[in-house]
Structure formats: C-alpha cells, structure tokens
Design a protein around this nucleic acid. Structure first.
Lengths: 357, 357
DNA sequence: TGGCTCTATTAAAACGTTTTAGTTAATAAC
DNA sequence: GTTATTAACTAAAACGTTTTAATAGAGCCA
C-alpha cells in the first residue's frame, strides 16, 4: 500500500528534506548521485533515500530541466505517422535513445503544415535537447531551418538531405537502389520492363530514376518511354496504393507488352500487383513486380513482394546516435560539423519476381 | 532575416520587458492575453508585441508549466507502436487533442514492460495533464494503477477495461463483433465454419468467442470443436500474421472440410489467406475468410479482407475527449466518475467472403 | 475635503529543482 | 601553534515564467 495523498499536492524535494531533517541541497545531491554525494555519509544517504521512498517522492521533471537546462528528451517530429514507412524508423530511434537513457517523444503532423509548425514550436518550447524529423513527404527547408537555428538544437532529418543548413541528414542511397532494382529484373532475363516513377516533386523520384538509367546504360538496355508512367504529385499520405492501381491500369491501357514492372515504392507496387491480378495477369508467372522500401506490409501480400530495402530501423538508429553524439561532444555548440549519411539499400528477393521463361 | 543569436541564451520574457521598458508582469499579461490585459492600453500592448516579435521571443514552456501547473499536454503511452492497430487510434487522438488546442506526445514501449514503466514515469514526471494508454496487449492493472493514482492524472485506457480502478476505458464491444462475424458467414450459407480463436490470456478472445457462441445458439448452428484452433499466448507484437499461418496449416492438417474461416483478427486472417492460397484453396471461391479490427493493411490483400471493424479512429477521439472533458469539468479532482465506453463494431464486407456456391 | 471606482502598471512571491559558494568541525602537515 | 585539507553539510541564488496583491493617478460623487 502506497501512502495515499489526500491533498492534491505532490510530494516535493522540500518535503523529503523537512521530513528527513536535512537540507534540500543534500537531498538533491543524494537522490541524483551527484559528484558531491561522495562526501555524504552512508548513514544520511540511506536515511534520505528511505524517506524519499516512504513519501513516494517523484521529482518534478519540469523544475529539474528548468534549472539544469537538461532533460534528456529528444523530440521526434513525424510528417505522417500513418505511413508505414515511419514505424520501423521510430523503432530504431526509440531503441538507440533508450540505450542512451534518453527519452523520445513523438508528435505527428498528419500531413498538415500547420500542425507541423505548431508541434515543432512546442517541442522546442519544451526545450528538447535534440530533434529528429521524419520527412516522408516534401519538406520546405526554409521554415524548419529558421526555428531550429534560432534554438540551436541539434537536428537530423531522415529521408531528405537539406543543402546549406545546419541540419544533419540520414537517407538511403536512392540512386544505388534504383540501379539495384533494375539490375535484379535484368538478371532474371527481363527486357521489356515497365516503370512507375515517383511524384516529380519528390527528390527521391529523380534519384531512383537516375540509378535506373545508369544501369540501363551500363547494360545497354533500352527503356521504352511508352512503358513509363509517373505517380501524381498530389499525394496524401497513404495514397501510394491507390496511385499504384491507377498507374498500372494506365499501363495496361497502353497495350504495350512487358514482363516486369518496377514500382516507385512498396505501396504502389502492392497496388500494382492488385491490378495485375484482377486483370488475370499472374504475378510473378506472367509479370514480375519489384517495389522499394520494404515497409512492413510488403510481406503480407501473396506473392510476397520483392523489393529494395531501405534499412529503416538502422536509419532511425543512426539518426538518434548522431544527435546523442553531438550532444555529448559539444553540449554548447551542437552544429559542429553537419553530416549527411547515406545508407546502402539492400535487395530483398521474395516471391513477386521470377526469371522469364 | 531573423536576428541571429550569438550567445547560446534564448530570449526571455525579461529581455522583452527590459527592451520594451515595461515590467515582466505586464509583458506576460499582454502576451498571454490574460484577463488583466483588458486594462492594458492599446499602445503598450502593440509595443510589447512588436518587441517580442523583434527579439524572436519564444516562451519557455517548462517555466510556464512549472508556475501555472498547466501545460496542455496529454501523454499517450503505446504498448507497441508497430502494431498497425495503433496508428488509426493515434490519428483520432491527435485530431481531437489538436482541436482542443492540446498537444499529445507519444511514447512507445515496444512490448517491453520495463520501457512501459519508465515512459510512464517520465510522462508523469513531465506533469502531463492526462494520460491515454493504448493497450494492444495484456496489461497488468496493478502497476499502472499505483503510479497513476498517486499522481491523480485523469487516465483512459483504450482496448481494455480495468475493473475497480480510477481509469476510464474505451473499447469495442467484442461480443457483438463476434456475433456479427458469424452471422455474416451464416447468412452467406456457410455451415461448416472453422475458427481461429485468440490467445487465451487476452480478454478479447473470450468475449468474441462468447459472441460467436451466442449466435450459434440463436441460429442453431453447431460448432465442430475439431474446427477450432487457438492462437498461442506468447505473442510478440506482429506475430499475428505468422500465427495465422500456423493455425491454418494446423486446420488443414486435420482434414475436416470447411467452407469458411473466422479468424481472431485481421493479421491472423491475412496469414490464413496466405496459407489457403498457397494450398491451392481459392479465397473466397473455395473458402471465405473474415477478420476482426479492420487494420489498414486489410485493404491491401487480394482479395481484400472482409472484417468486423473496430472504429479505431473514433475510439481515439472518444478517449481524448473523455480526458479533456474531465479536465475541463474538474481540474482539481479528475476521477469524478469512471466511465467505460463500449463502441459498436461494424461489418465491412469486402472480397474475402462469398455466399456458398 | 475625503472617499469611491476605474485604469494602467508593477513588485515580489511563488513553482520545485540544481548548483555555487560557503560554513563548520575535525584531522593532518609543517 | 598556525595553516592546509578534507568530510559533511547547507544558504541562497538561480532557472523563466505566472499570479497575487499593491500602487498610484484620475475621474466622480457627496
């Protein structure tokens, strides 16, 4: 039975001090195991600890961080949490942050700019020590930059690289990924390959496509422009699936034969498979499909999706580590040297691709 | 161009006061549009606002909440974020909370008890005004209760109902859902129906099953115990899919004919469909499948999953509203009357169920 | 003249910690 | 017999706000 509070007031450090007969300073030193605790006698130490426990003392973290200017909290700002892309990243972040005995608090902007800004403001107002932004959509650099620079909080953005700012970046090597994807299809013997490219506004789209073209050139493979479609720019969070469906319908409408499709990402690939299946085109027997990302739902389809994996959990790890390192290194001036970390993608062969025969 | 800070210090209220020639009190009153602002002359008001803007003043929320004992922050504690069940709930919460101009911060325990407790402690230490717990797994009441009661923070738990505590609950009417699911299959003419029940330790399992039995009784439908399998208890977050695969394999091994399967939840239903498809049993032609929850991936499969929907977003809404209401009603003693809110499930017919030939 | 009620503003006391700079008393060093 | 050193504490000043109670001046009434 814990002692019940009748009053609404929480037990404070002073209560413990009073009750134990020592000063607030001593209590603070003991309870935090501060360096000075070396000089506190064993006896008082245990006595204080006991009283604290007895009173059910829980420190007020607000007061603590106000005074000490540290709170061991990292803010995570997610542009849209319902994107399955976010979850593994968050997992990575949470793991690393936890190891370092920090806490991460997450805010979700639900694809709305106004929320993004408000949440950013509040996180900064709460004096988080670092900030991780998950950019699963187009982010205008400017706004972010201004606020963050003012507060001098070390920041990393996952999924985008911001030029000429004080913000670190972690992202996958999209070009290598595009290269890899096409190489895989080519190695299976596919030559007539259709492409669903990403939205034009998304920097990823261009980069992946660049990788694709690089491989095509290297392998002397010709890309038929009539087998290339683009996803529309206006993309609310989980519209990738719908867009993939539409894109594939368009592709079928063109009546040019192809034996494989490379989709911009997993969600569009899953939409693509649906259209093909409904049209009676068996995947992978009649047509192979490859995605990009390896989001969790990629294993749920039949056939399970072959894809180019972004190491999302690792990306979260790395981002968190960057922040924590820069916090450890220079608590005073964080943006010592801005880093851009490109992670290697990895081909994950499942069931949706097969060699031509 | 915002004015750059050369020093690491942030602009404080006092800076604004000094710069504008008024006292801190006045500045605070103006900037917060406090009741007393009525008496402040238009002129000073605009002057103060201007200086604040010029200096790029951002209030320190820590100091603010420390003093005013309010911070308009709700803590959300999720037992495992990678469960797709959470995302829609979070969306609902975030929406309602945002409307009420609160902020929600999320912490993810990643299925680990120790993290759950630590995060809980920190959220409470941060003096969040309310707490929402998303229980997508078995939660021992006791621990939660102790801490929460001590802090007298209004709390609601989503997905579980805790008896005899001061914690509100929001959950779906599992019994009605189970009833509904079986009714649907029955109305399509299915009589030989297999069941994949939930883990025994999960209260939901029993309740859904109770609903199933209730319908069976009402419709004079006999349930063949050899067509019933249970998901194992040891369930790490996203093992539902794997477990569904295993369970269906077991079912097929028994070689008792059936024309429909009712799965415990969507993830196991999706696993189930995979096994059936790989075994050459076409869904829904040869066998119908129904799930429970309507998690986002349910629409991604071919055929898309028929399921009993938990109104997850609405559940998030309701939970948040409960907290905010109880905060508005009685900021002093929150647990005025504990509520348990049961939400109605809804049948969502998609492509995985069909009437018997 | 004195006593009200407004208006416009502020001094100073919180809020609950951490931290800096002491203060003793005792022990050791010279 | 003075001076360091050390052990065991503590007073008091932050941290950056909000809020309470107060202070003046002005207008009005009797």
């Amino acid at each position: 039975m814990k002692p019940r509070k009748t009053t609404g007031r929480n037990t404070t450090l002073r209560d413990v001090a009073q009750q134990s007969g020592f000063s607030a300073a001593t209590v603070s030193i003991v309870l935090n195991q501060a360096p000075l605790a070396r000089y506190i006698s064993e006896q008082t130490r245990t006595h204080i600890e006991q009283t604290a426990r007895k009173l059910g003392y829980q420190p007020n973290l607000l007061a603590r961080s106000l005074r000490s200017r540290r709170n061991r909290i990292l803010g995570v700002l997610c542009f849209d949490l319902s994107d399955p892309f976010c979850t593994p990243i968050l997992k990575g972040i949470e793991n690393t942050v936890y190891q370092a005995s920090y806490l991460s608090v997450l805010a979700d902007a639900q694809s709305e700019w106004s929320r993004f800004e408000r949440h950013l403001e509040i996180l900064l107002g709460q004096r988080v020590e670092g900030l991780i932004v998950i950019a699963n959509w187009i982010l205008a650099d400017i706004d972010l930059l201004a606020d963050v620079e003012n507060h001098a909080v070390p920041t990393v953005i996952i999924g985008r690289d911001l030029e000429r700012t004080s913000v670190h970046s972690v992202l996958v090597d999209n070009e290598a990924g595009g290269y890899m994807a096409l190489q895989h299809l080519h190695s299976l013997g596919h030559r007539k390959i259709a492409f669903i490219r990403g939205p034009k506004l998304l920097p990823d789209s261009g980069r992946r496509w660049k990788g694709v073209r690089a491989f095509a050139r290297a392998a002397r493979l010709e890309i038929d422009p009539r087998l290339v479609v683009d996803l529309p720019d206006l993309r609310t969070p989980n519209s990738g699936f719908e867009a993939g469906i539409k894109a594939t319908e368009e592709l079928l409408r063109r009546r040019r034969p192809f034996t494989a499709i490379m989709a911009f990402d997993d969600m569009s690939a899953i939409g693509c498979m649906r259209t093909l299946t409904l049209a009676g085109i068996k995947v992978p027997d009649k047509c192979s499909v490859i995605g990009f990302d390896d989001v969790p739902p990629a294993i749920l389809t039949v056939p399970a999706l072959t894809t180019v994996r972004q190491p999302m959990e690792a990306m979260g790890d790395v981002a968190a580590a960057m922040i924590i390192d820069s916090l450890r290194a220079a608590p005073e001036n964080p943006d010592a040297n801005v880093q851009i970390r490109k992670m290697s993608p990895e081909l994950v062969v499942r069931e949706s691709t097969r060699s031509i025969s």
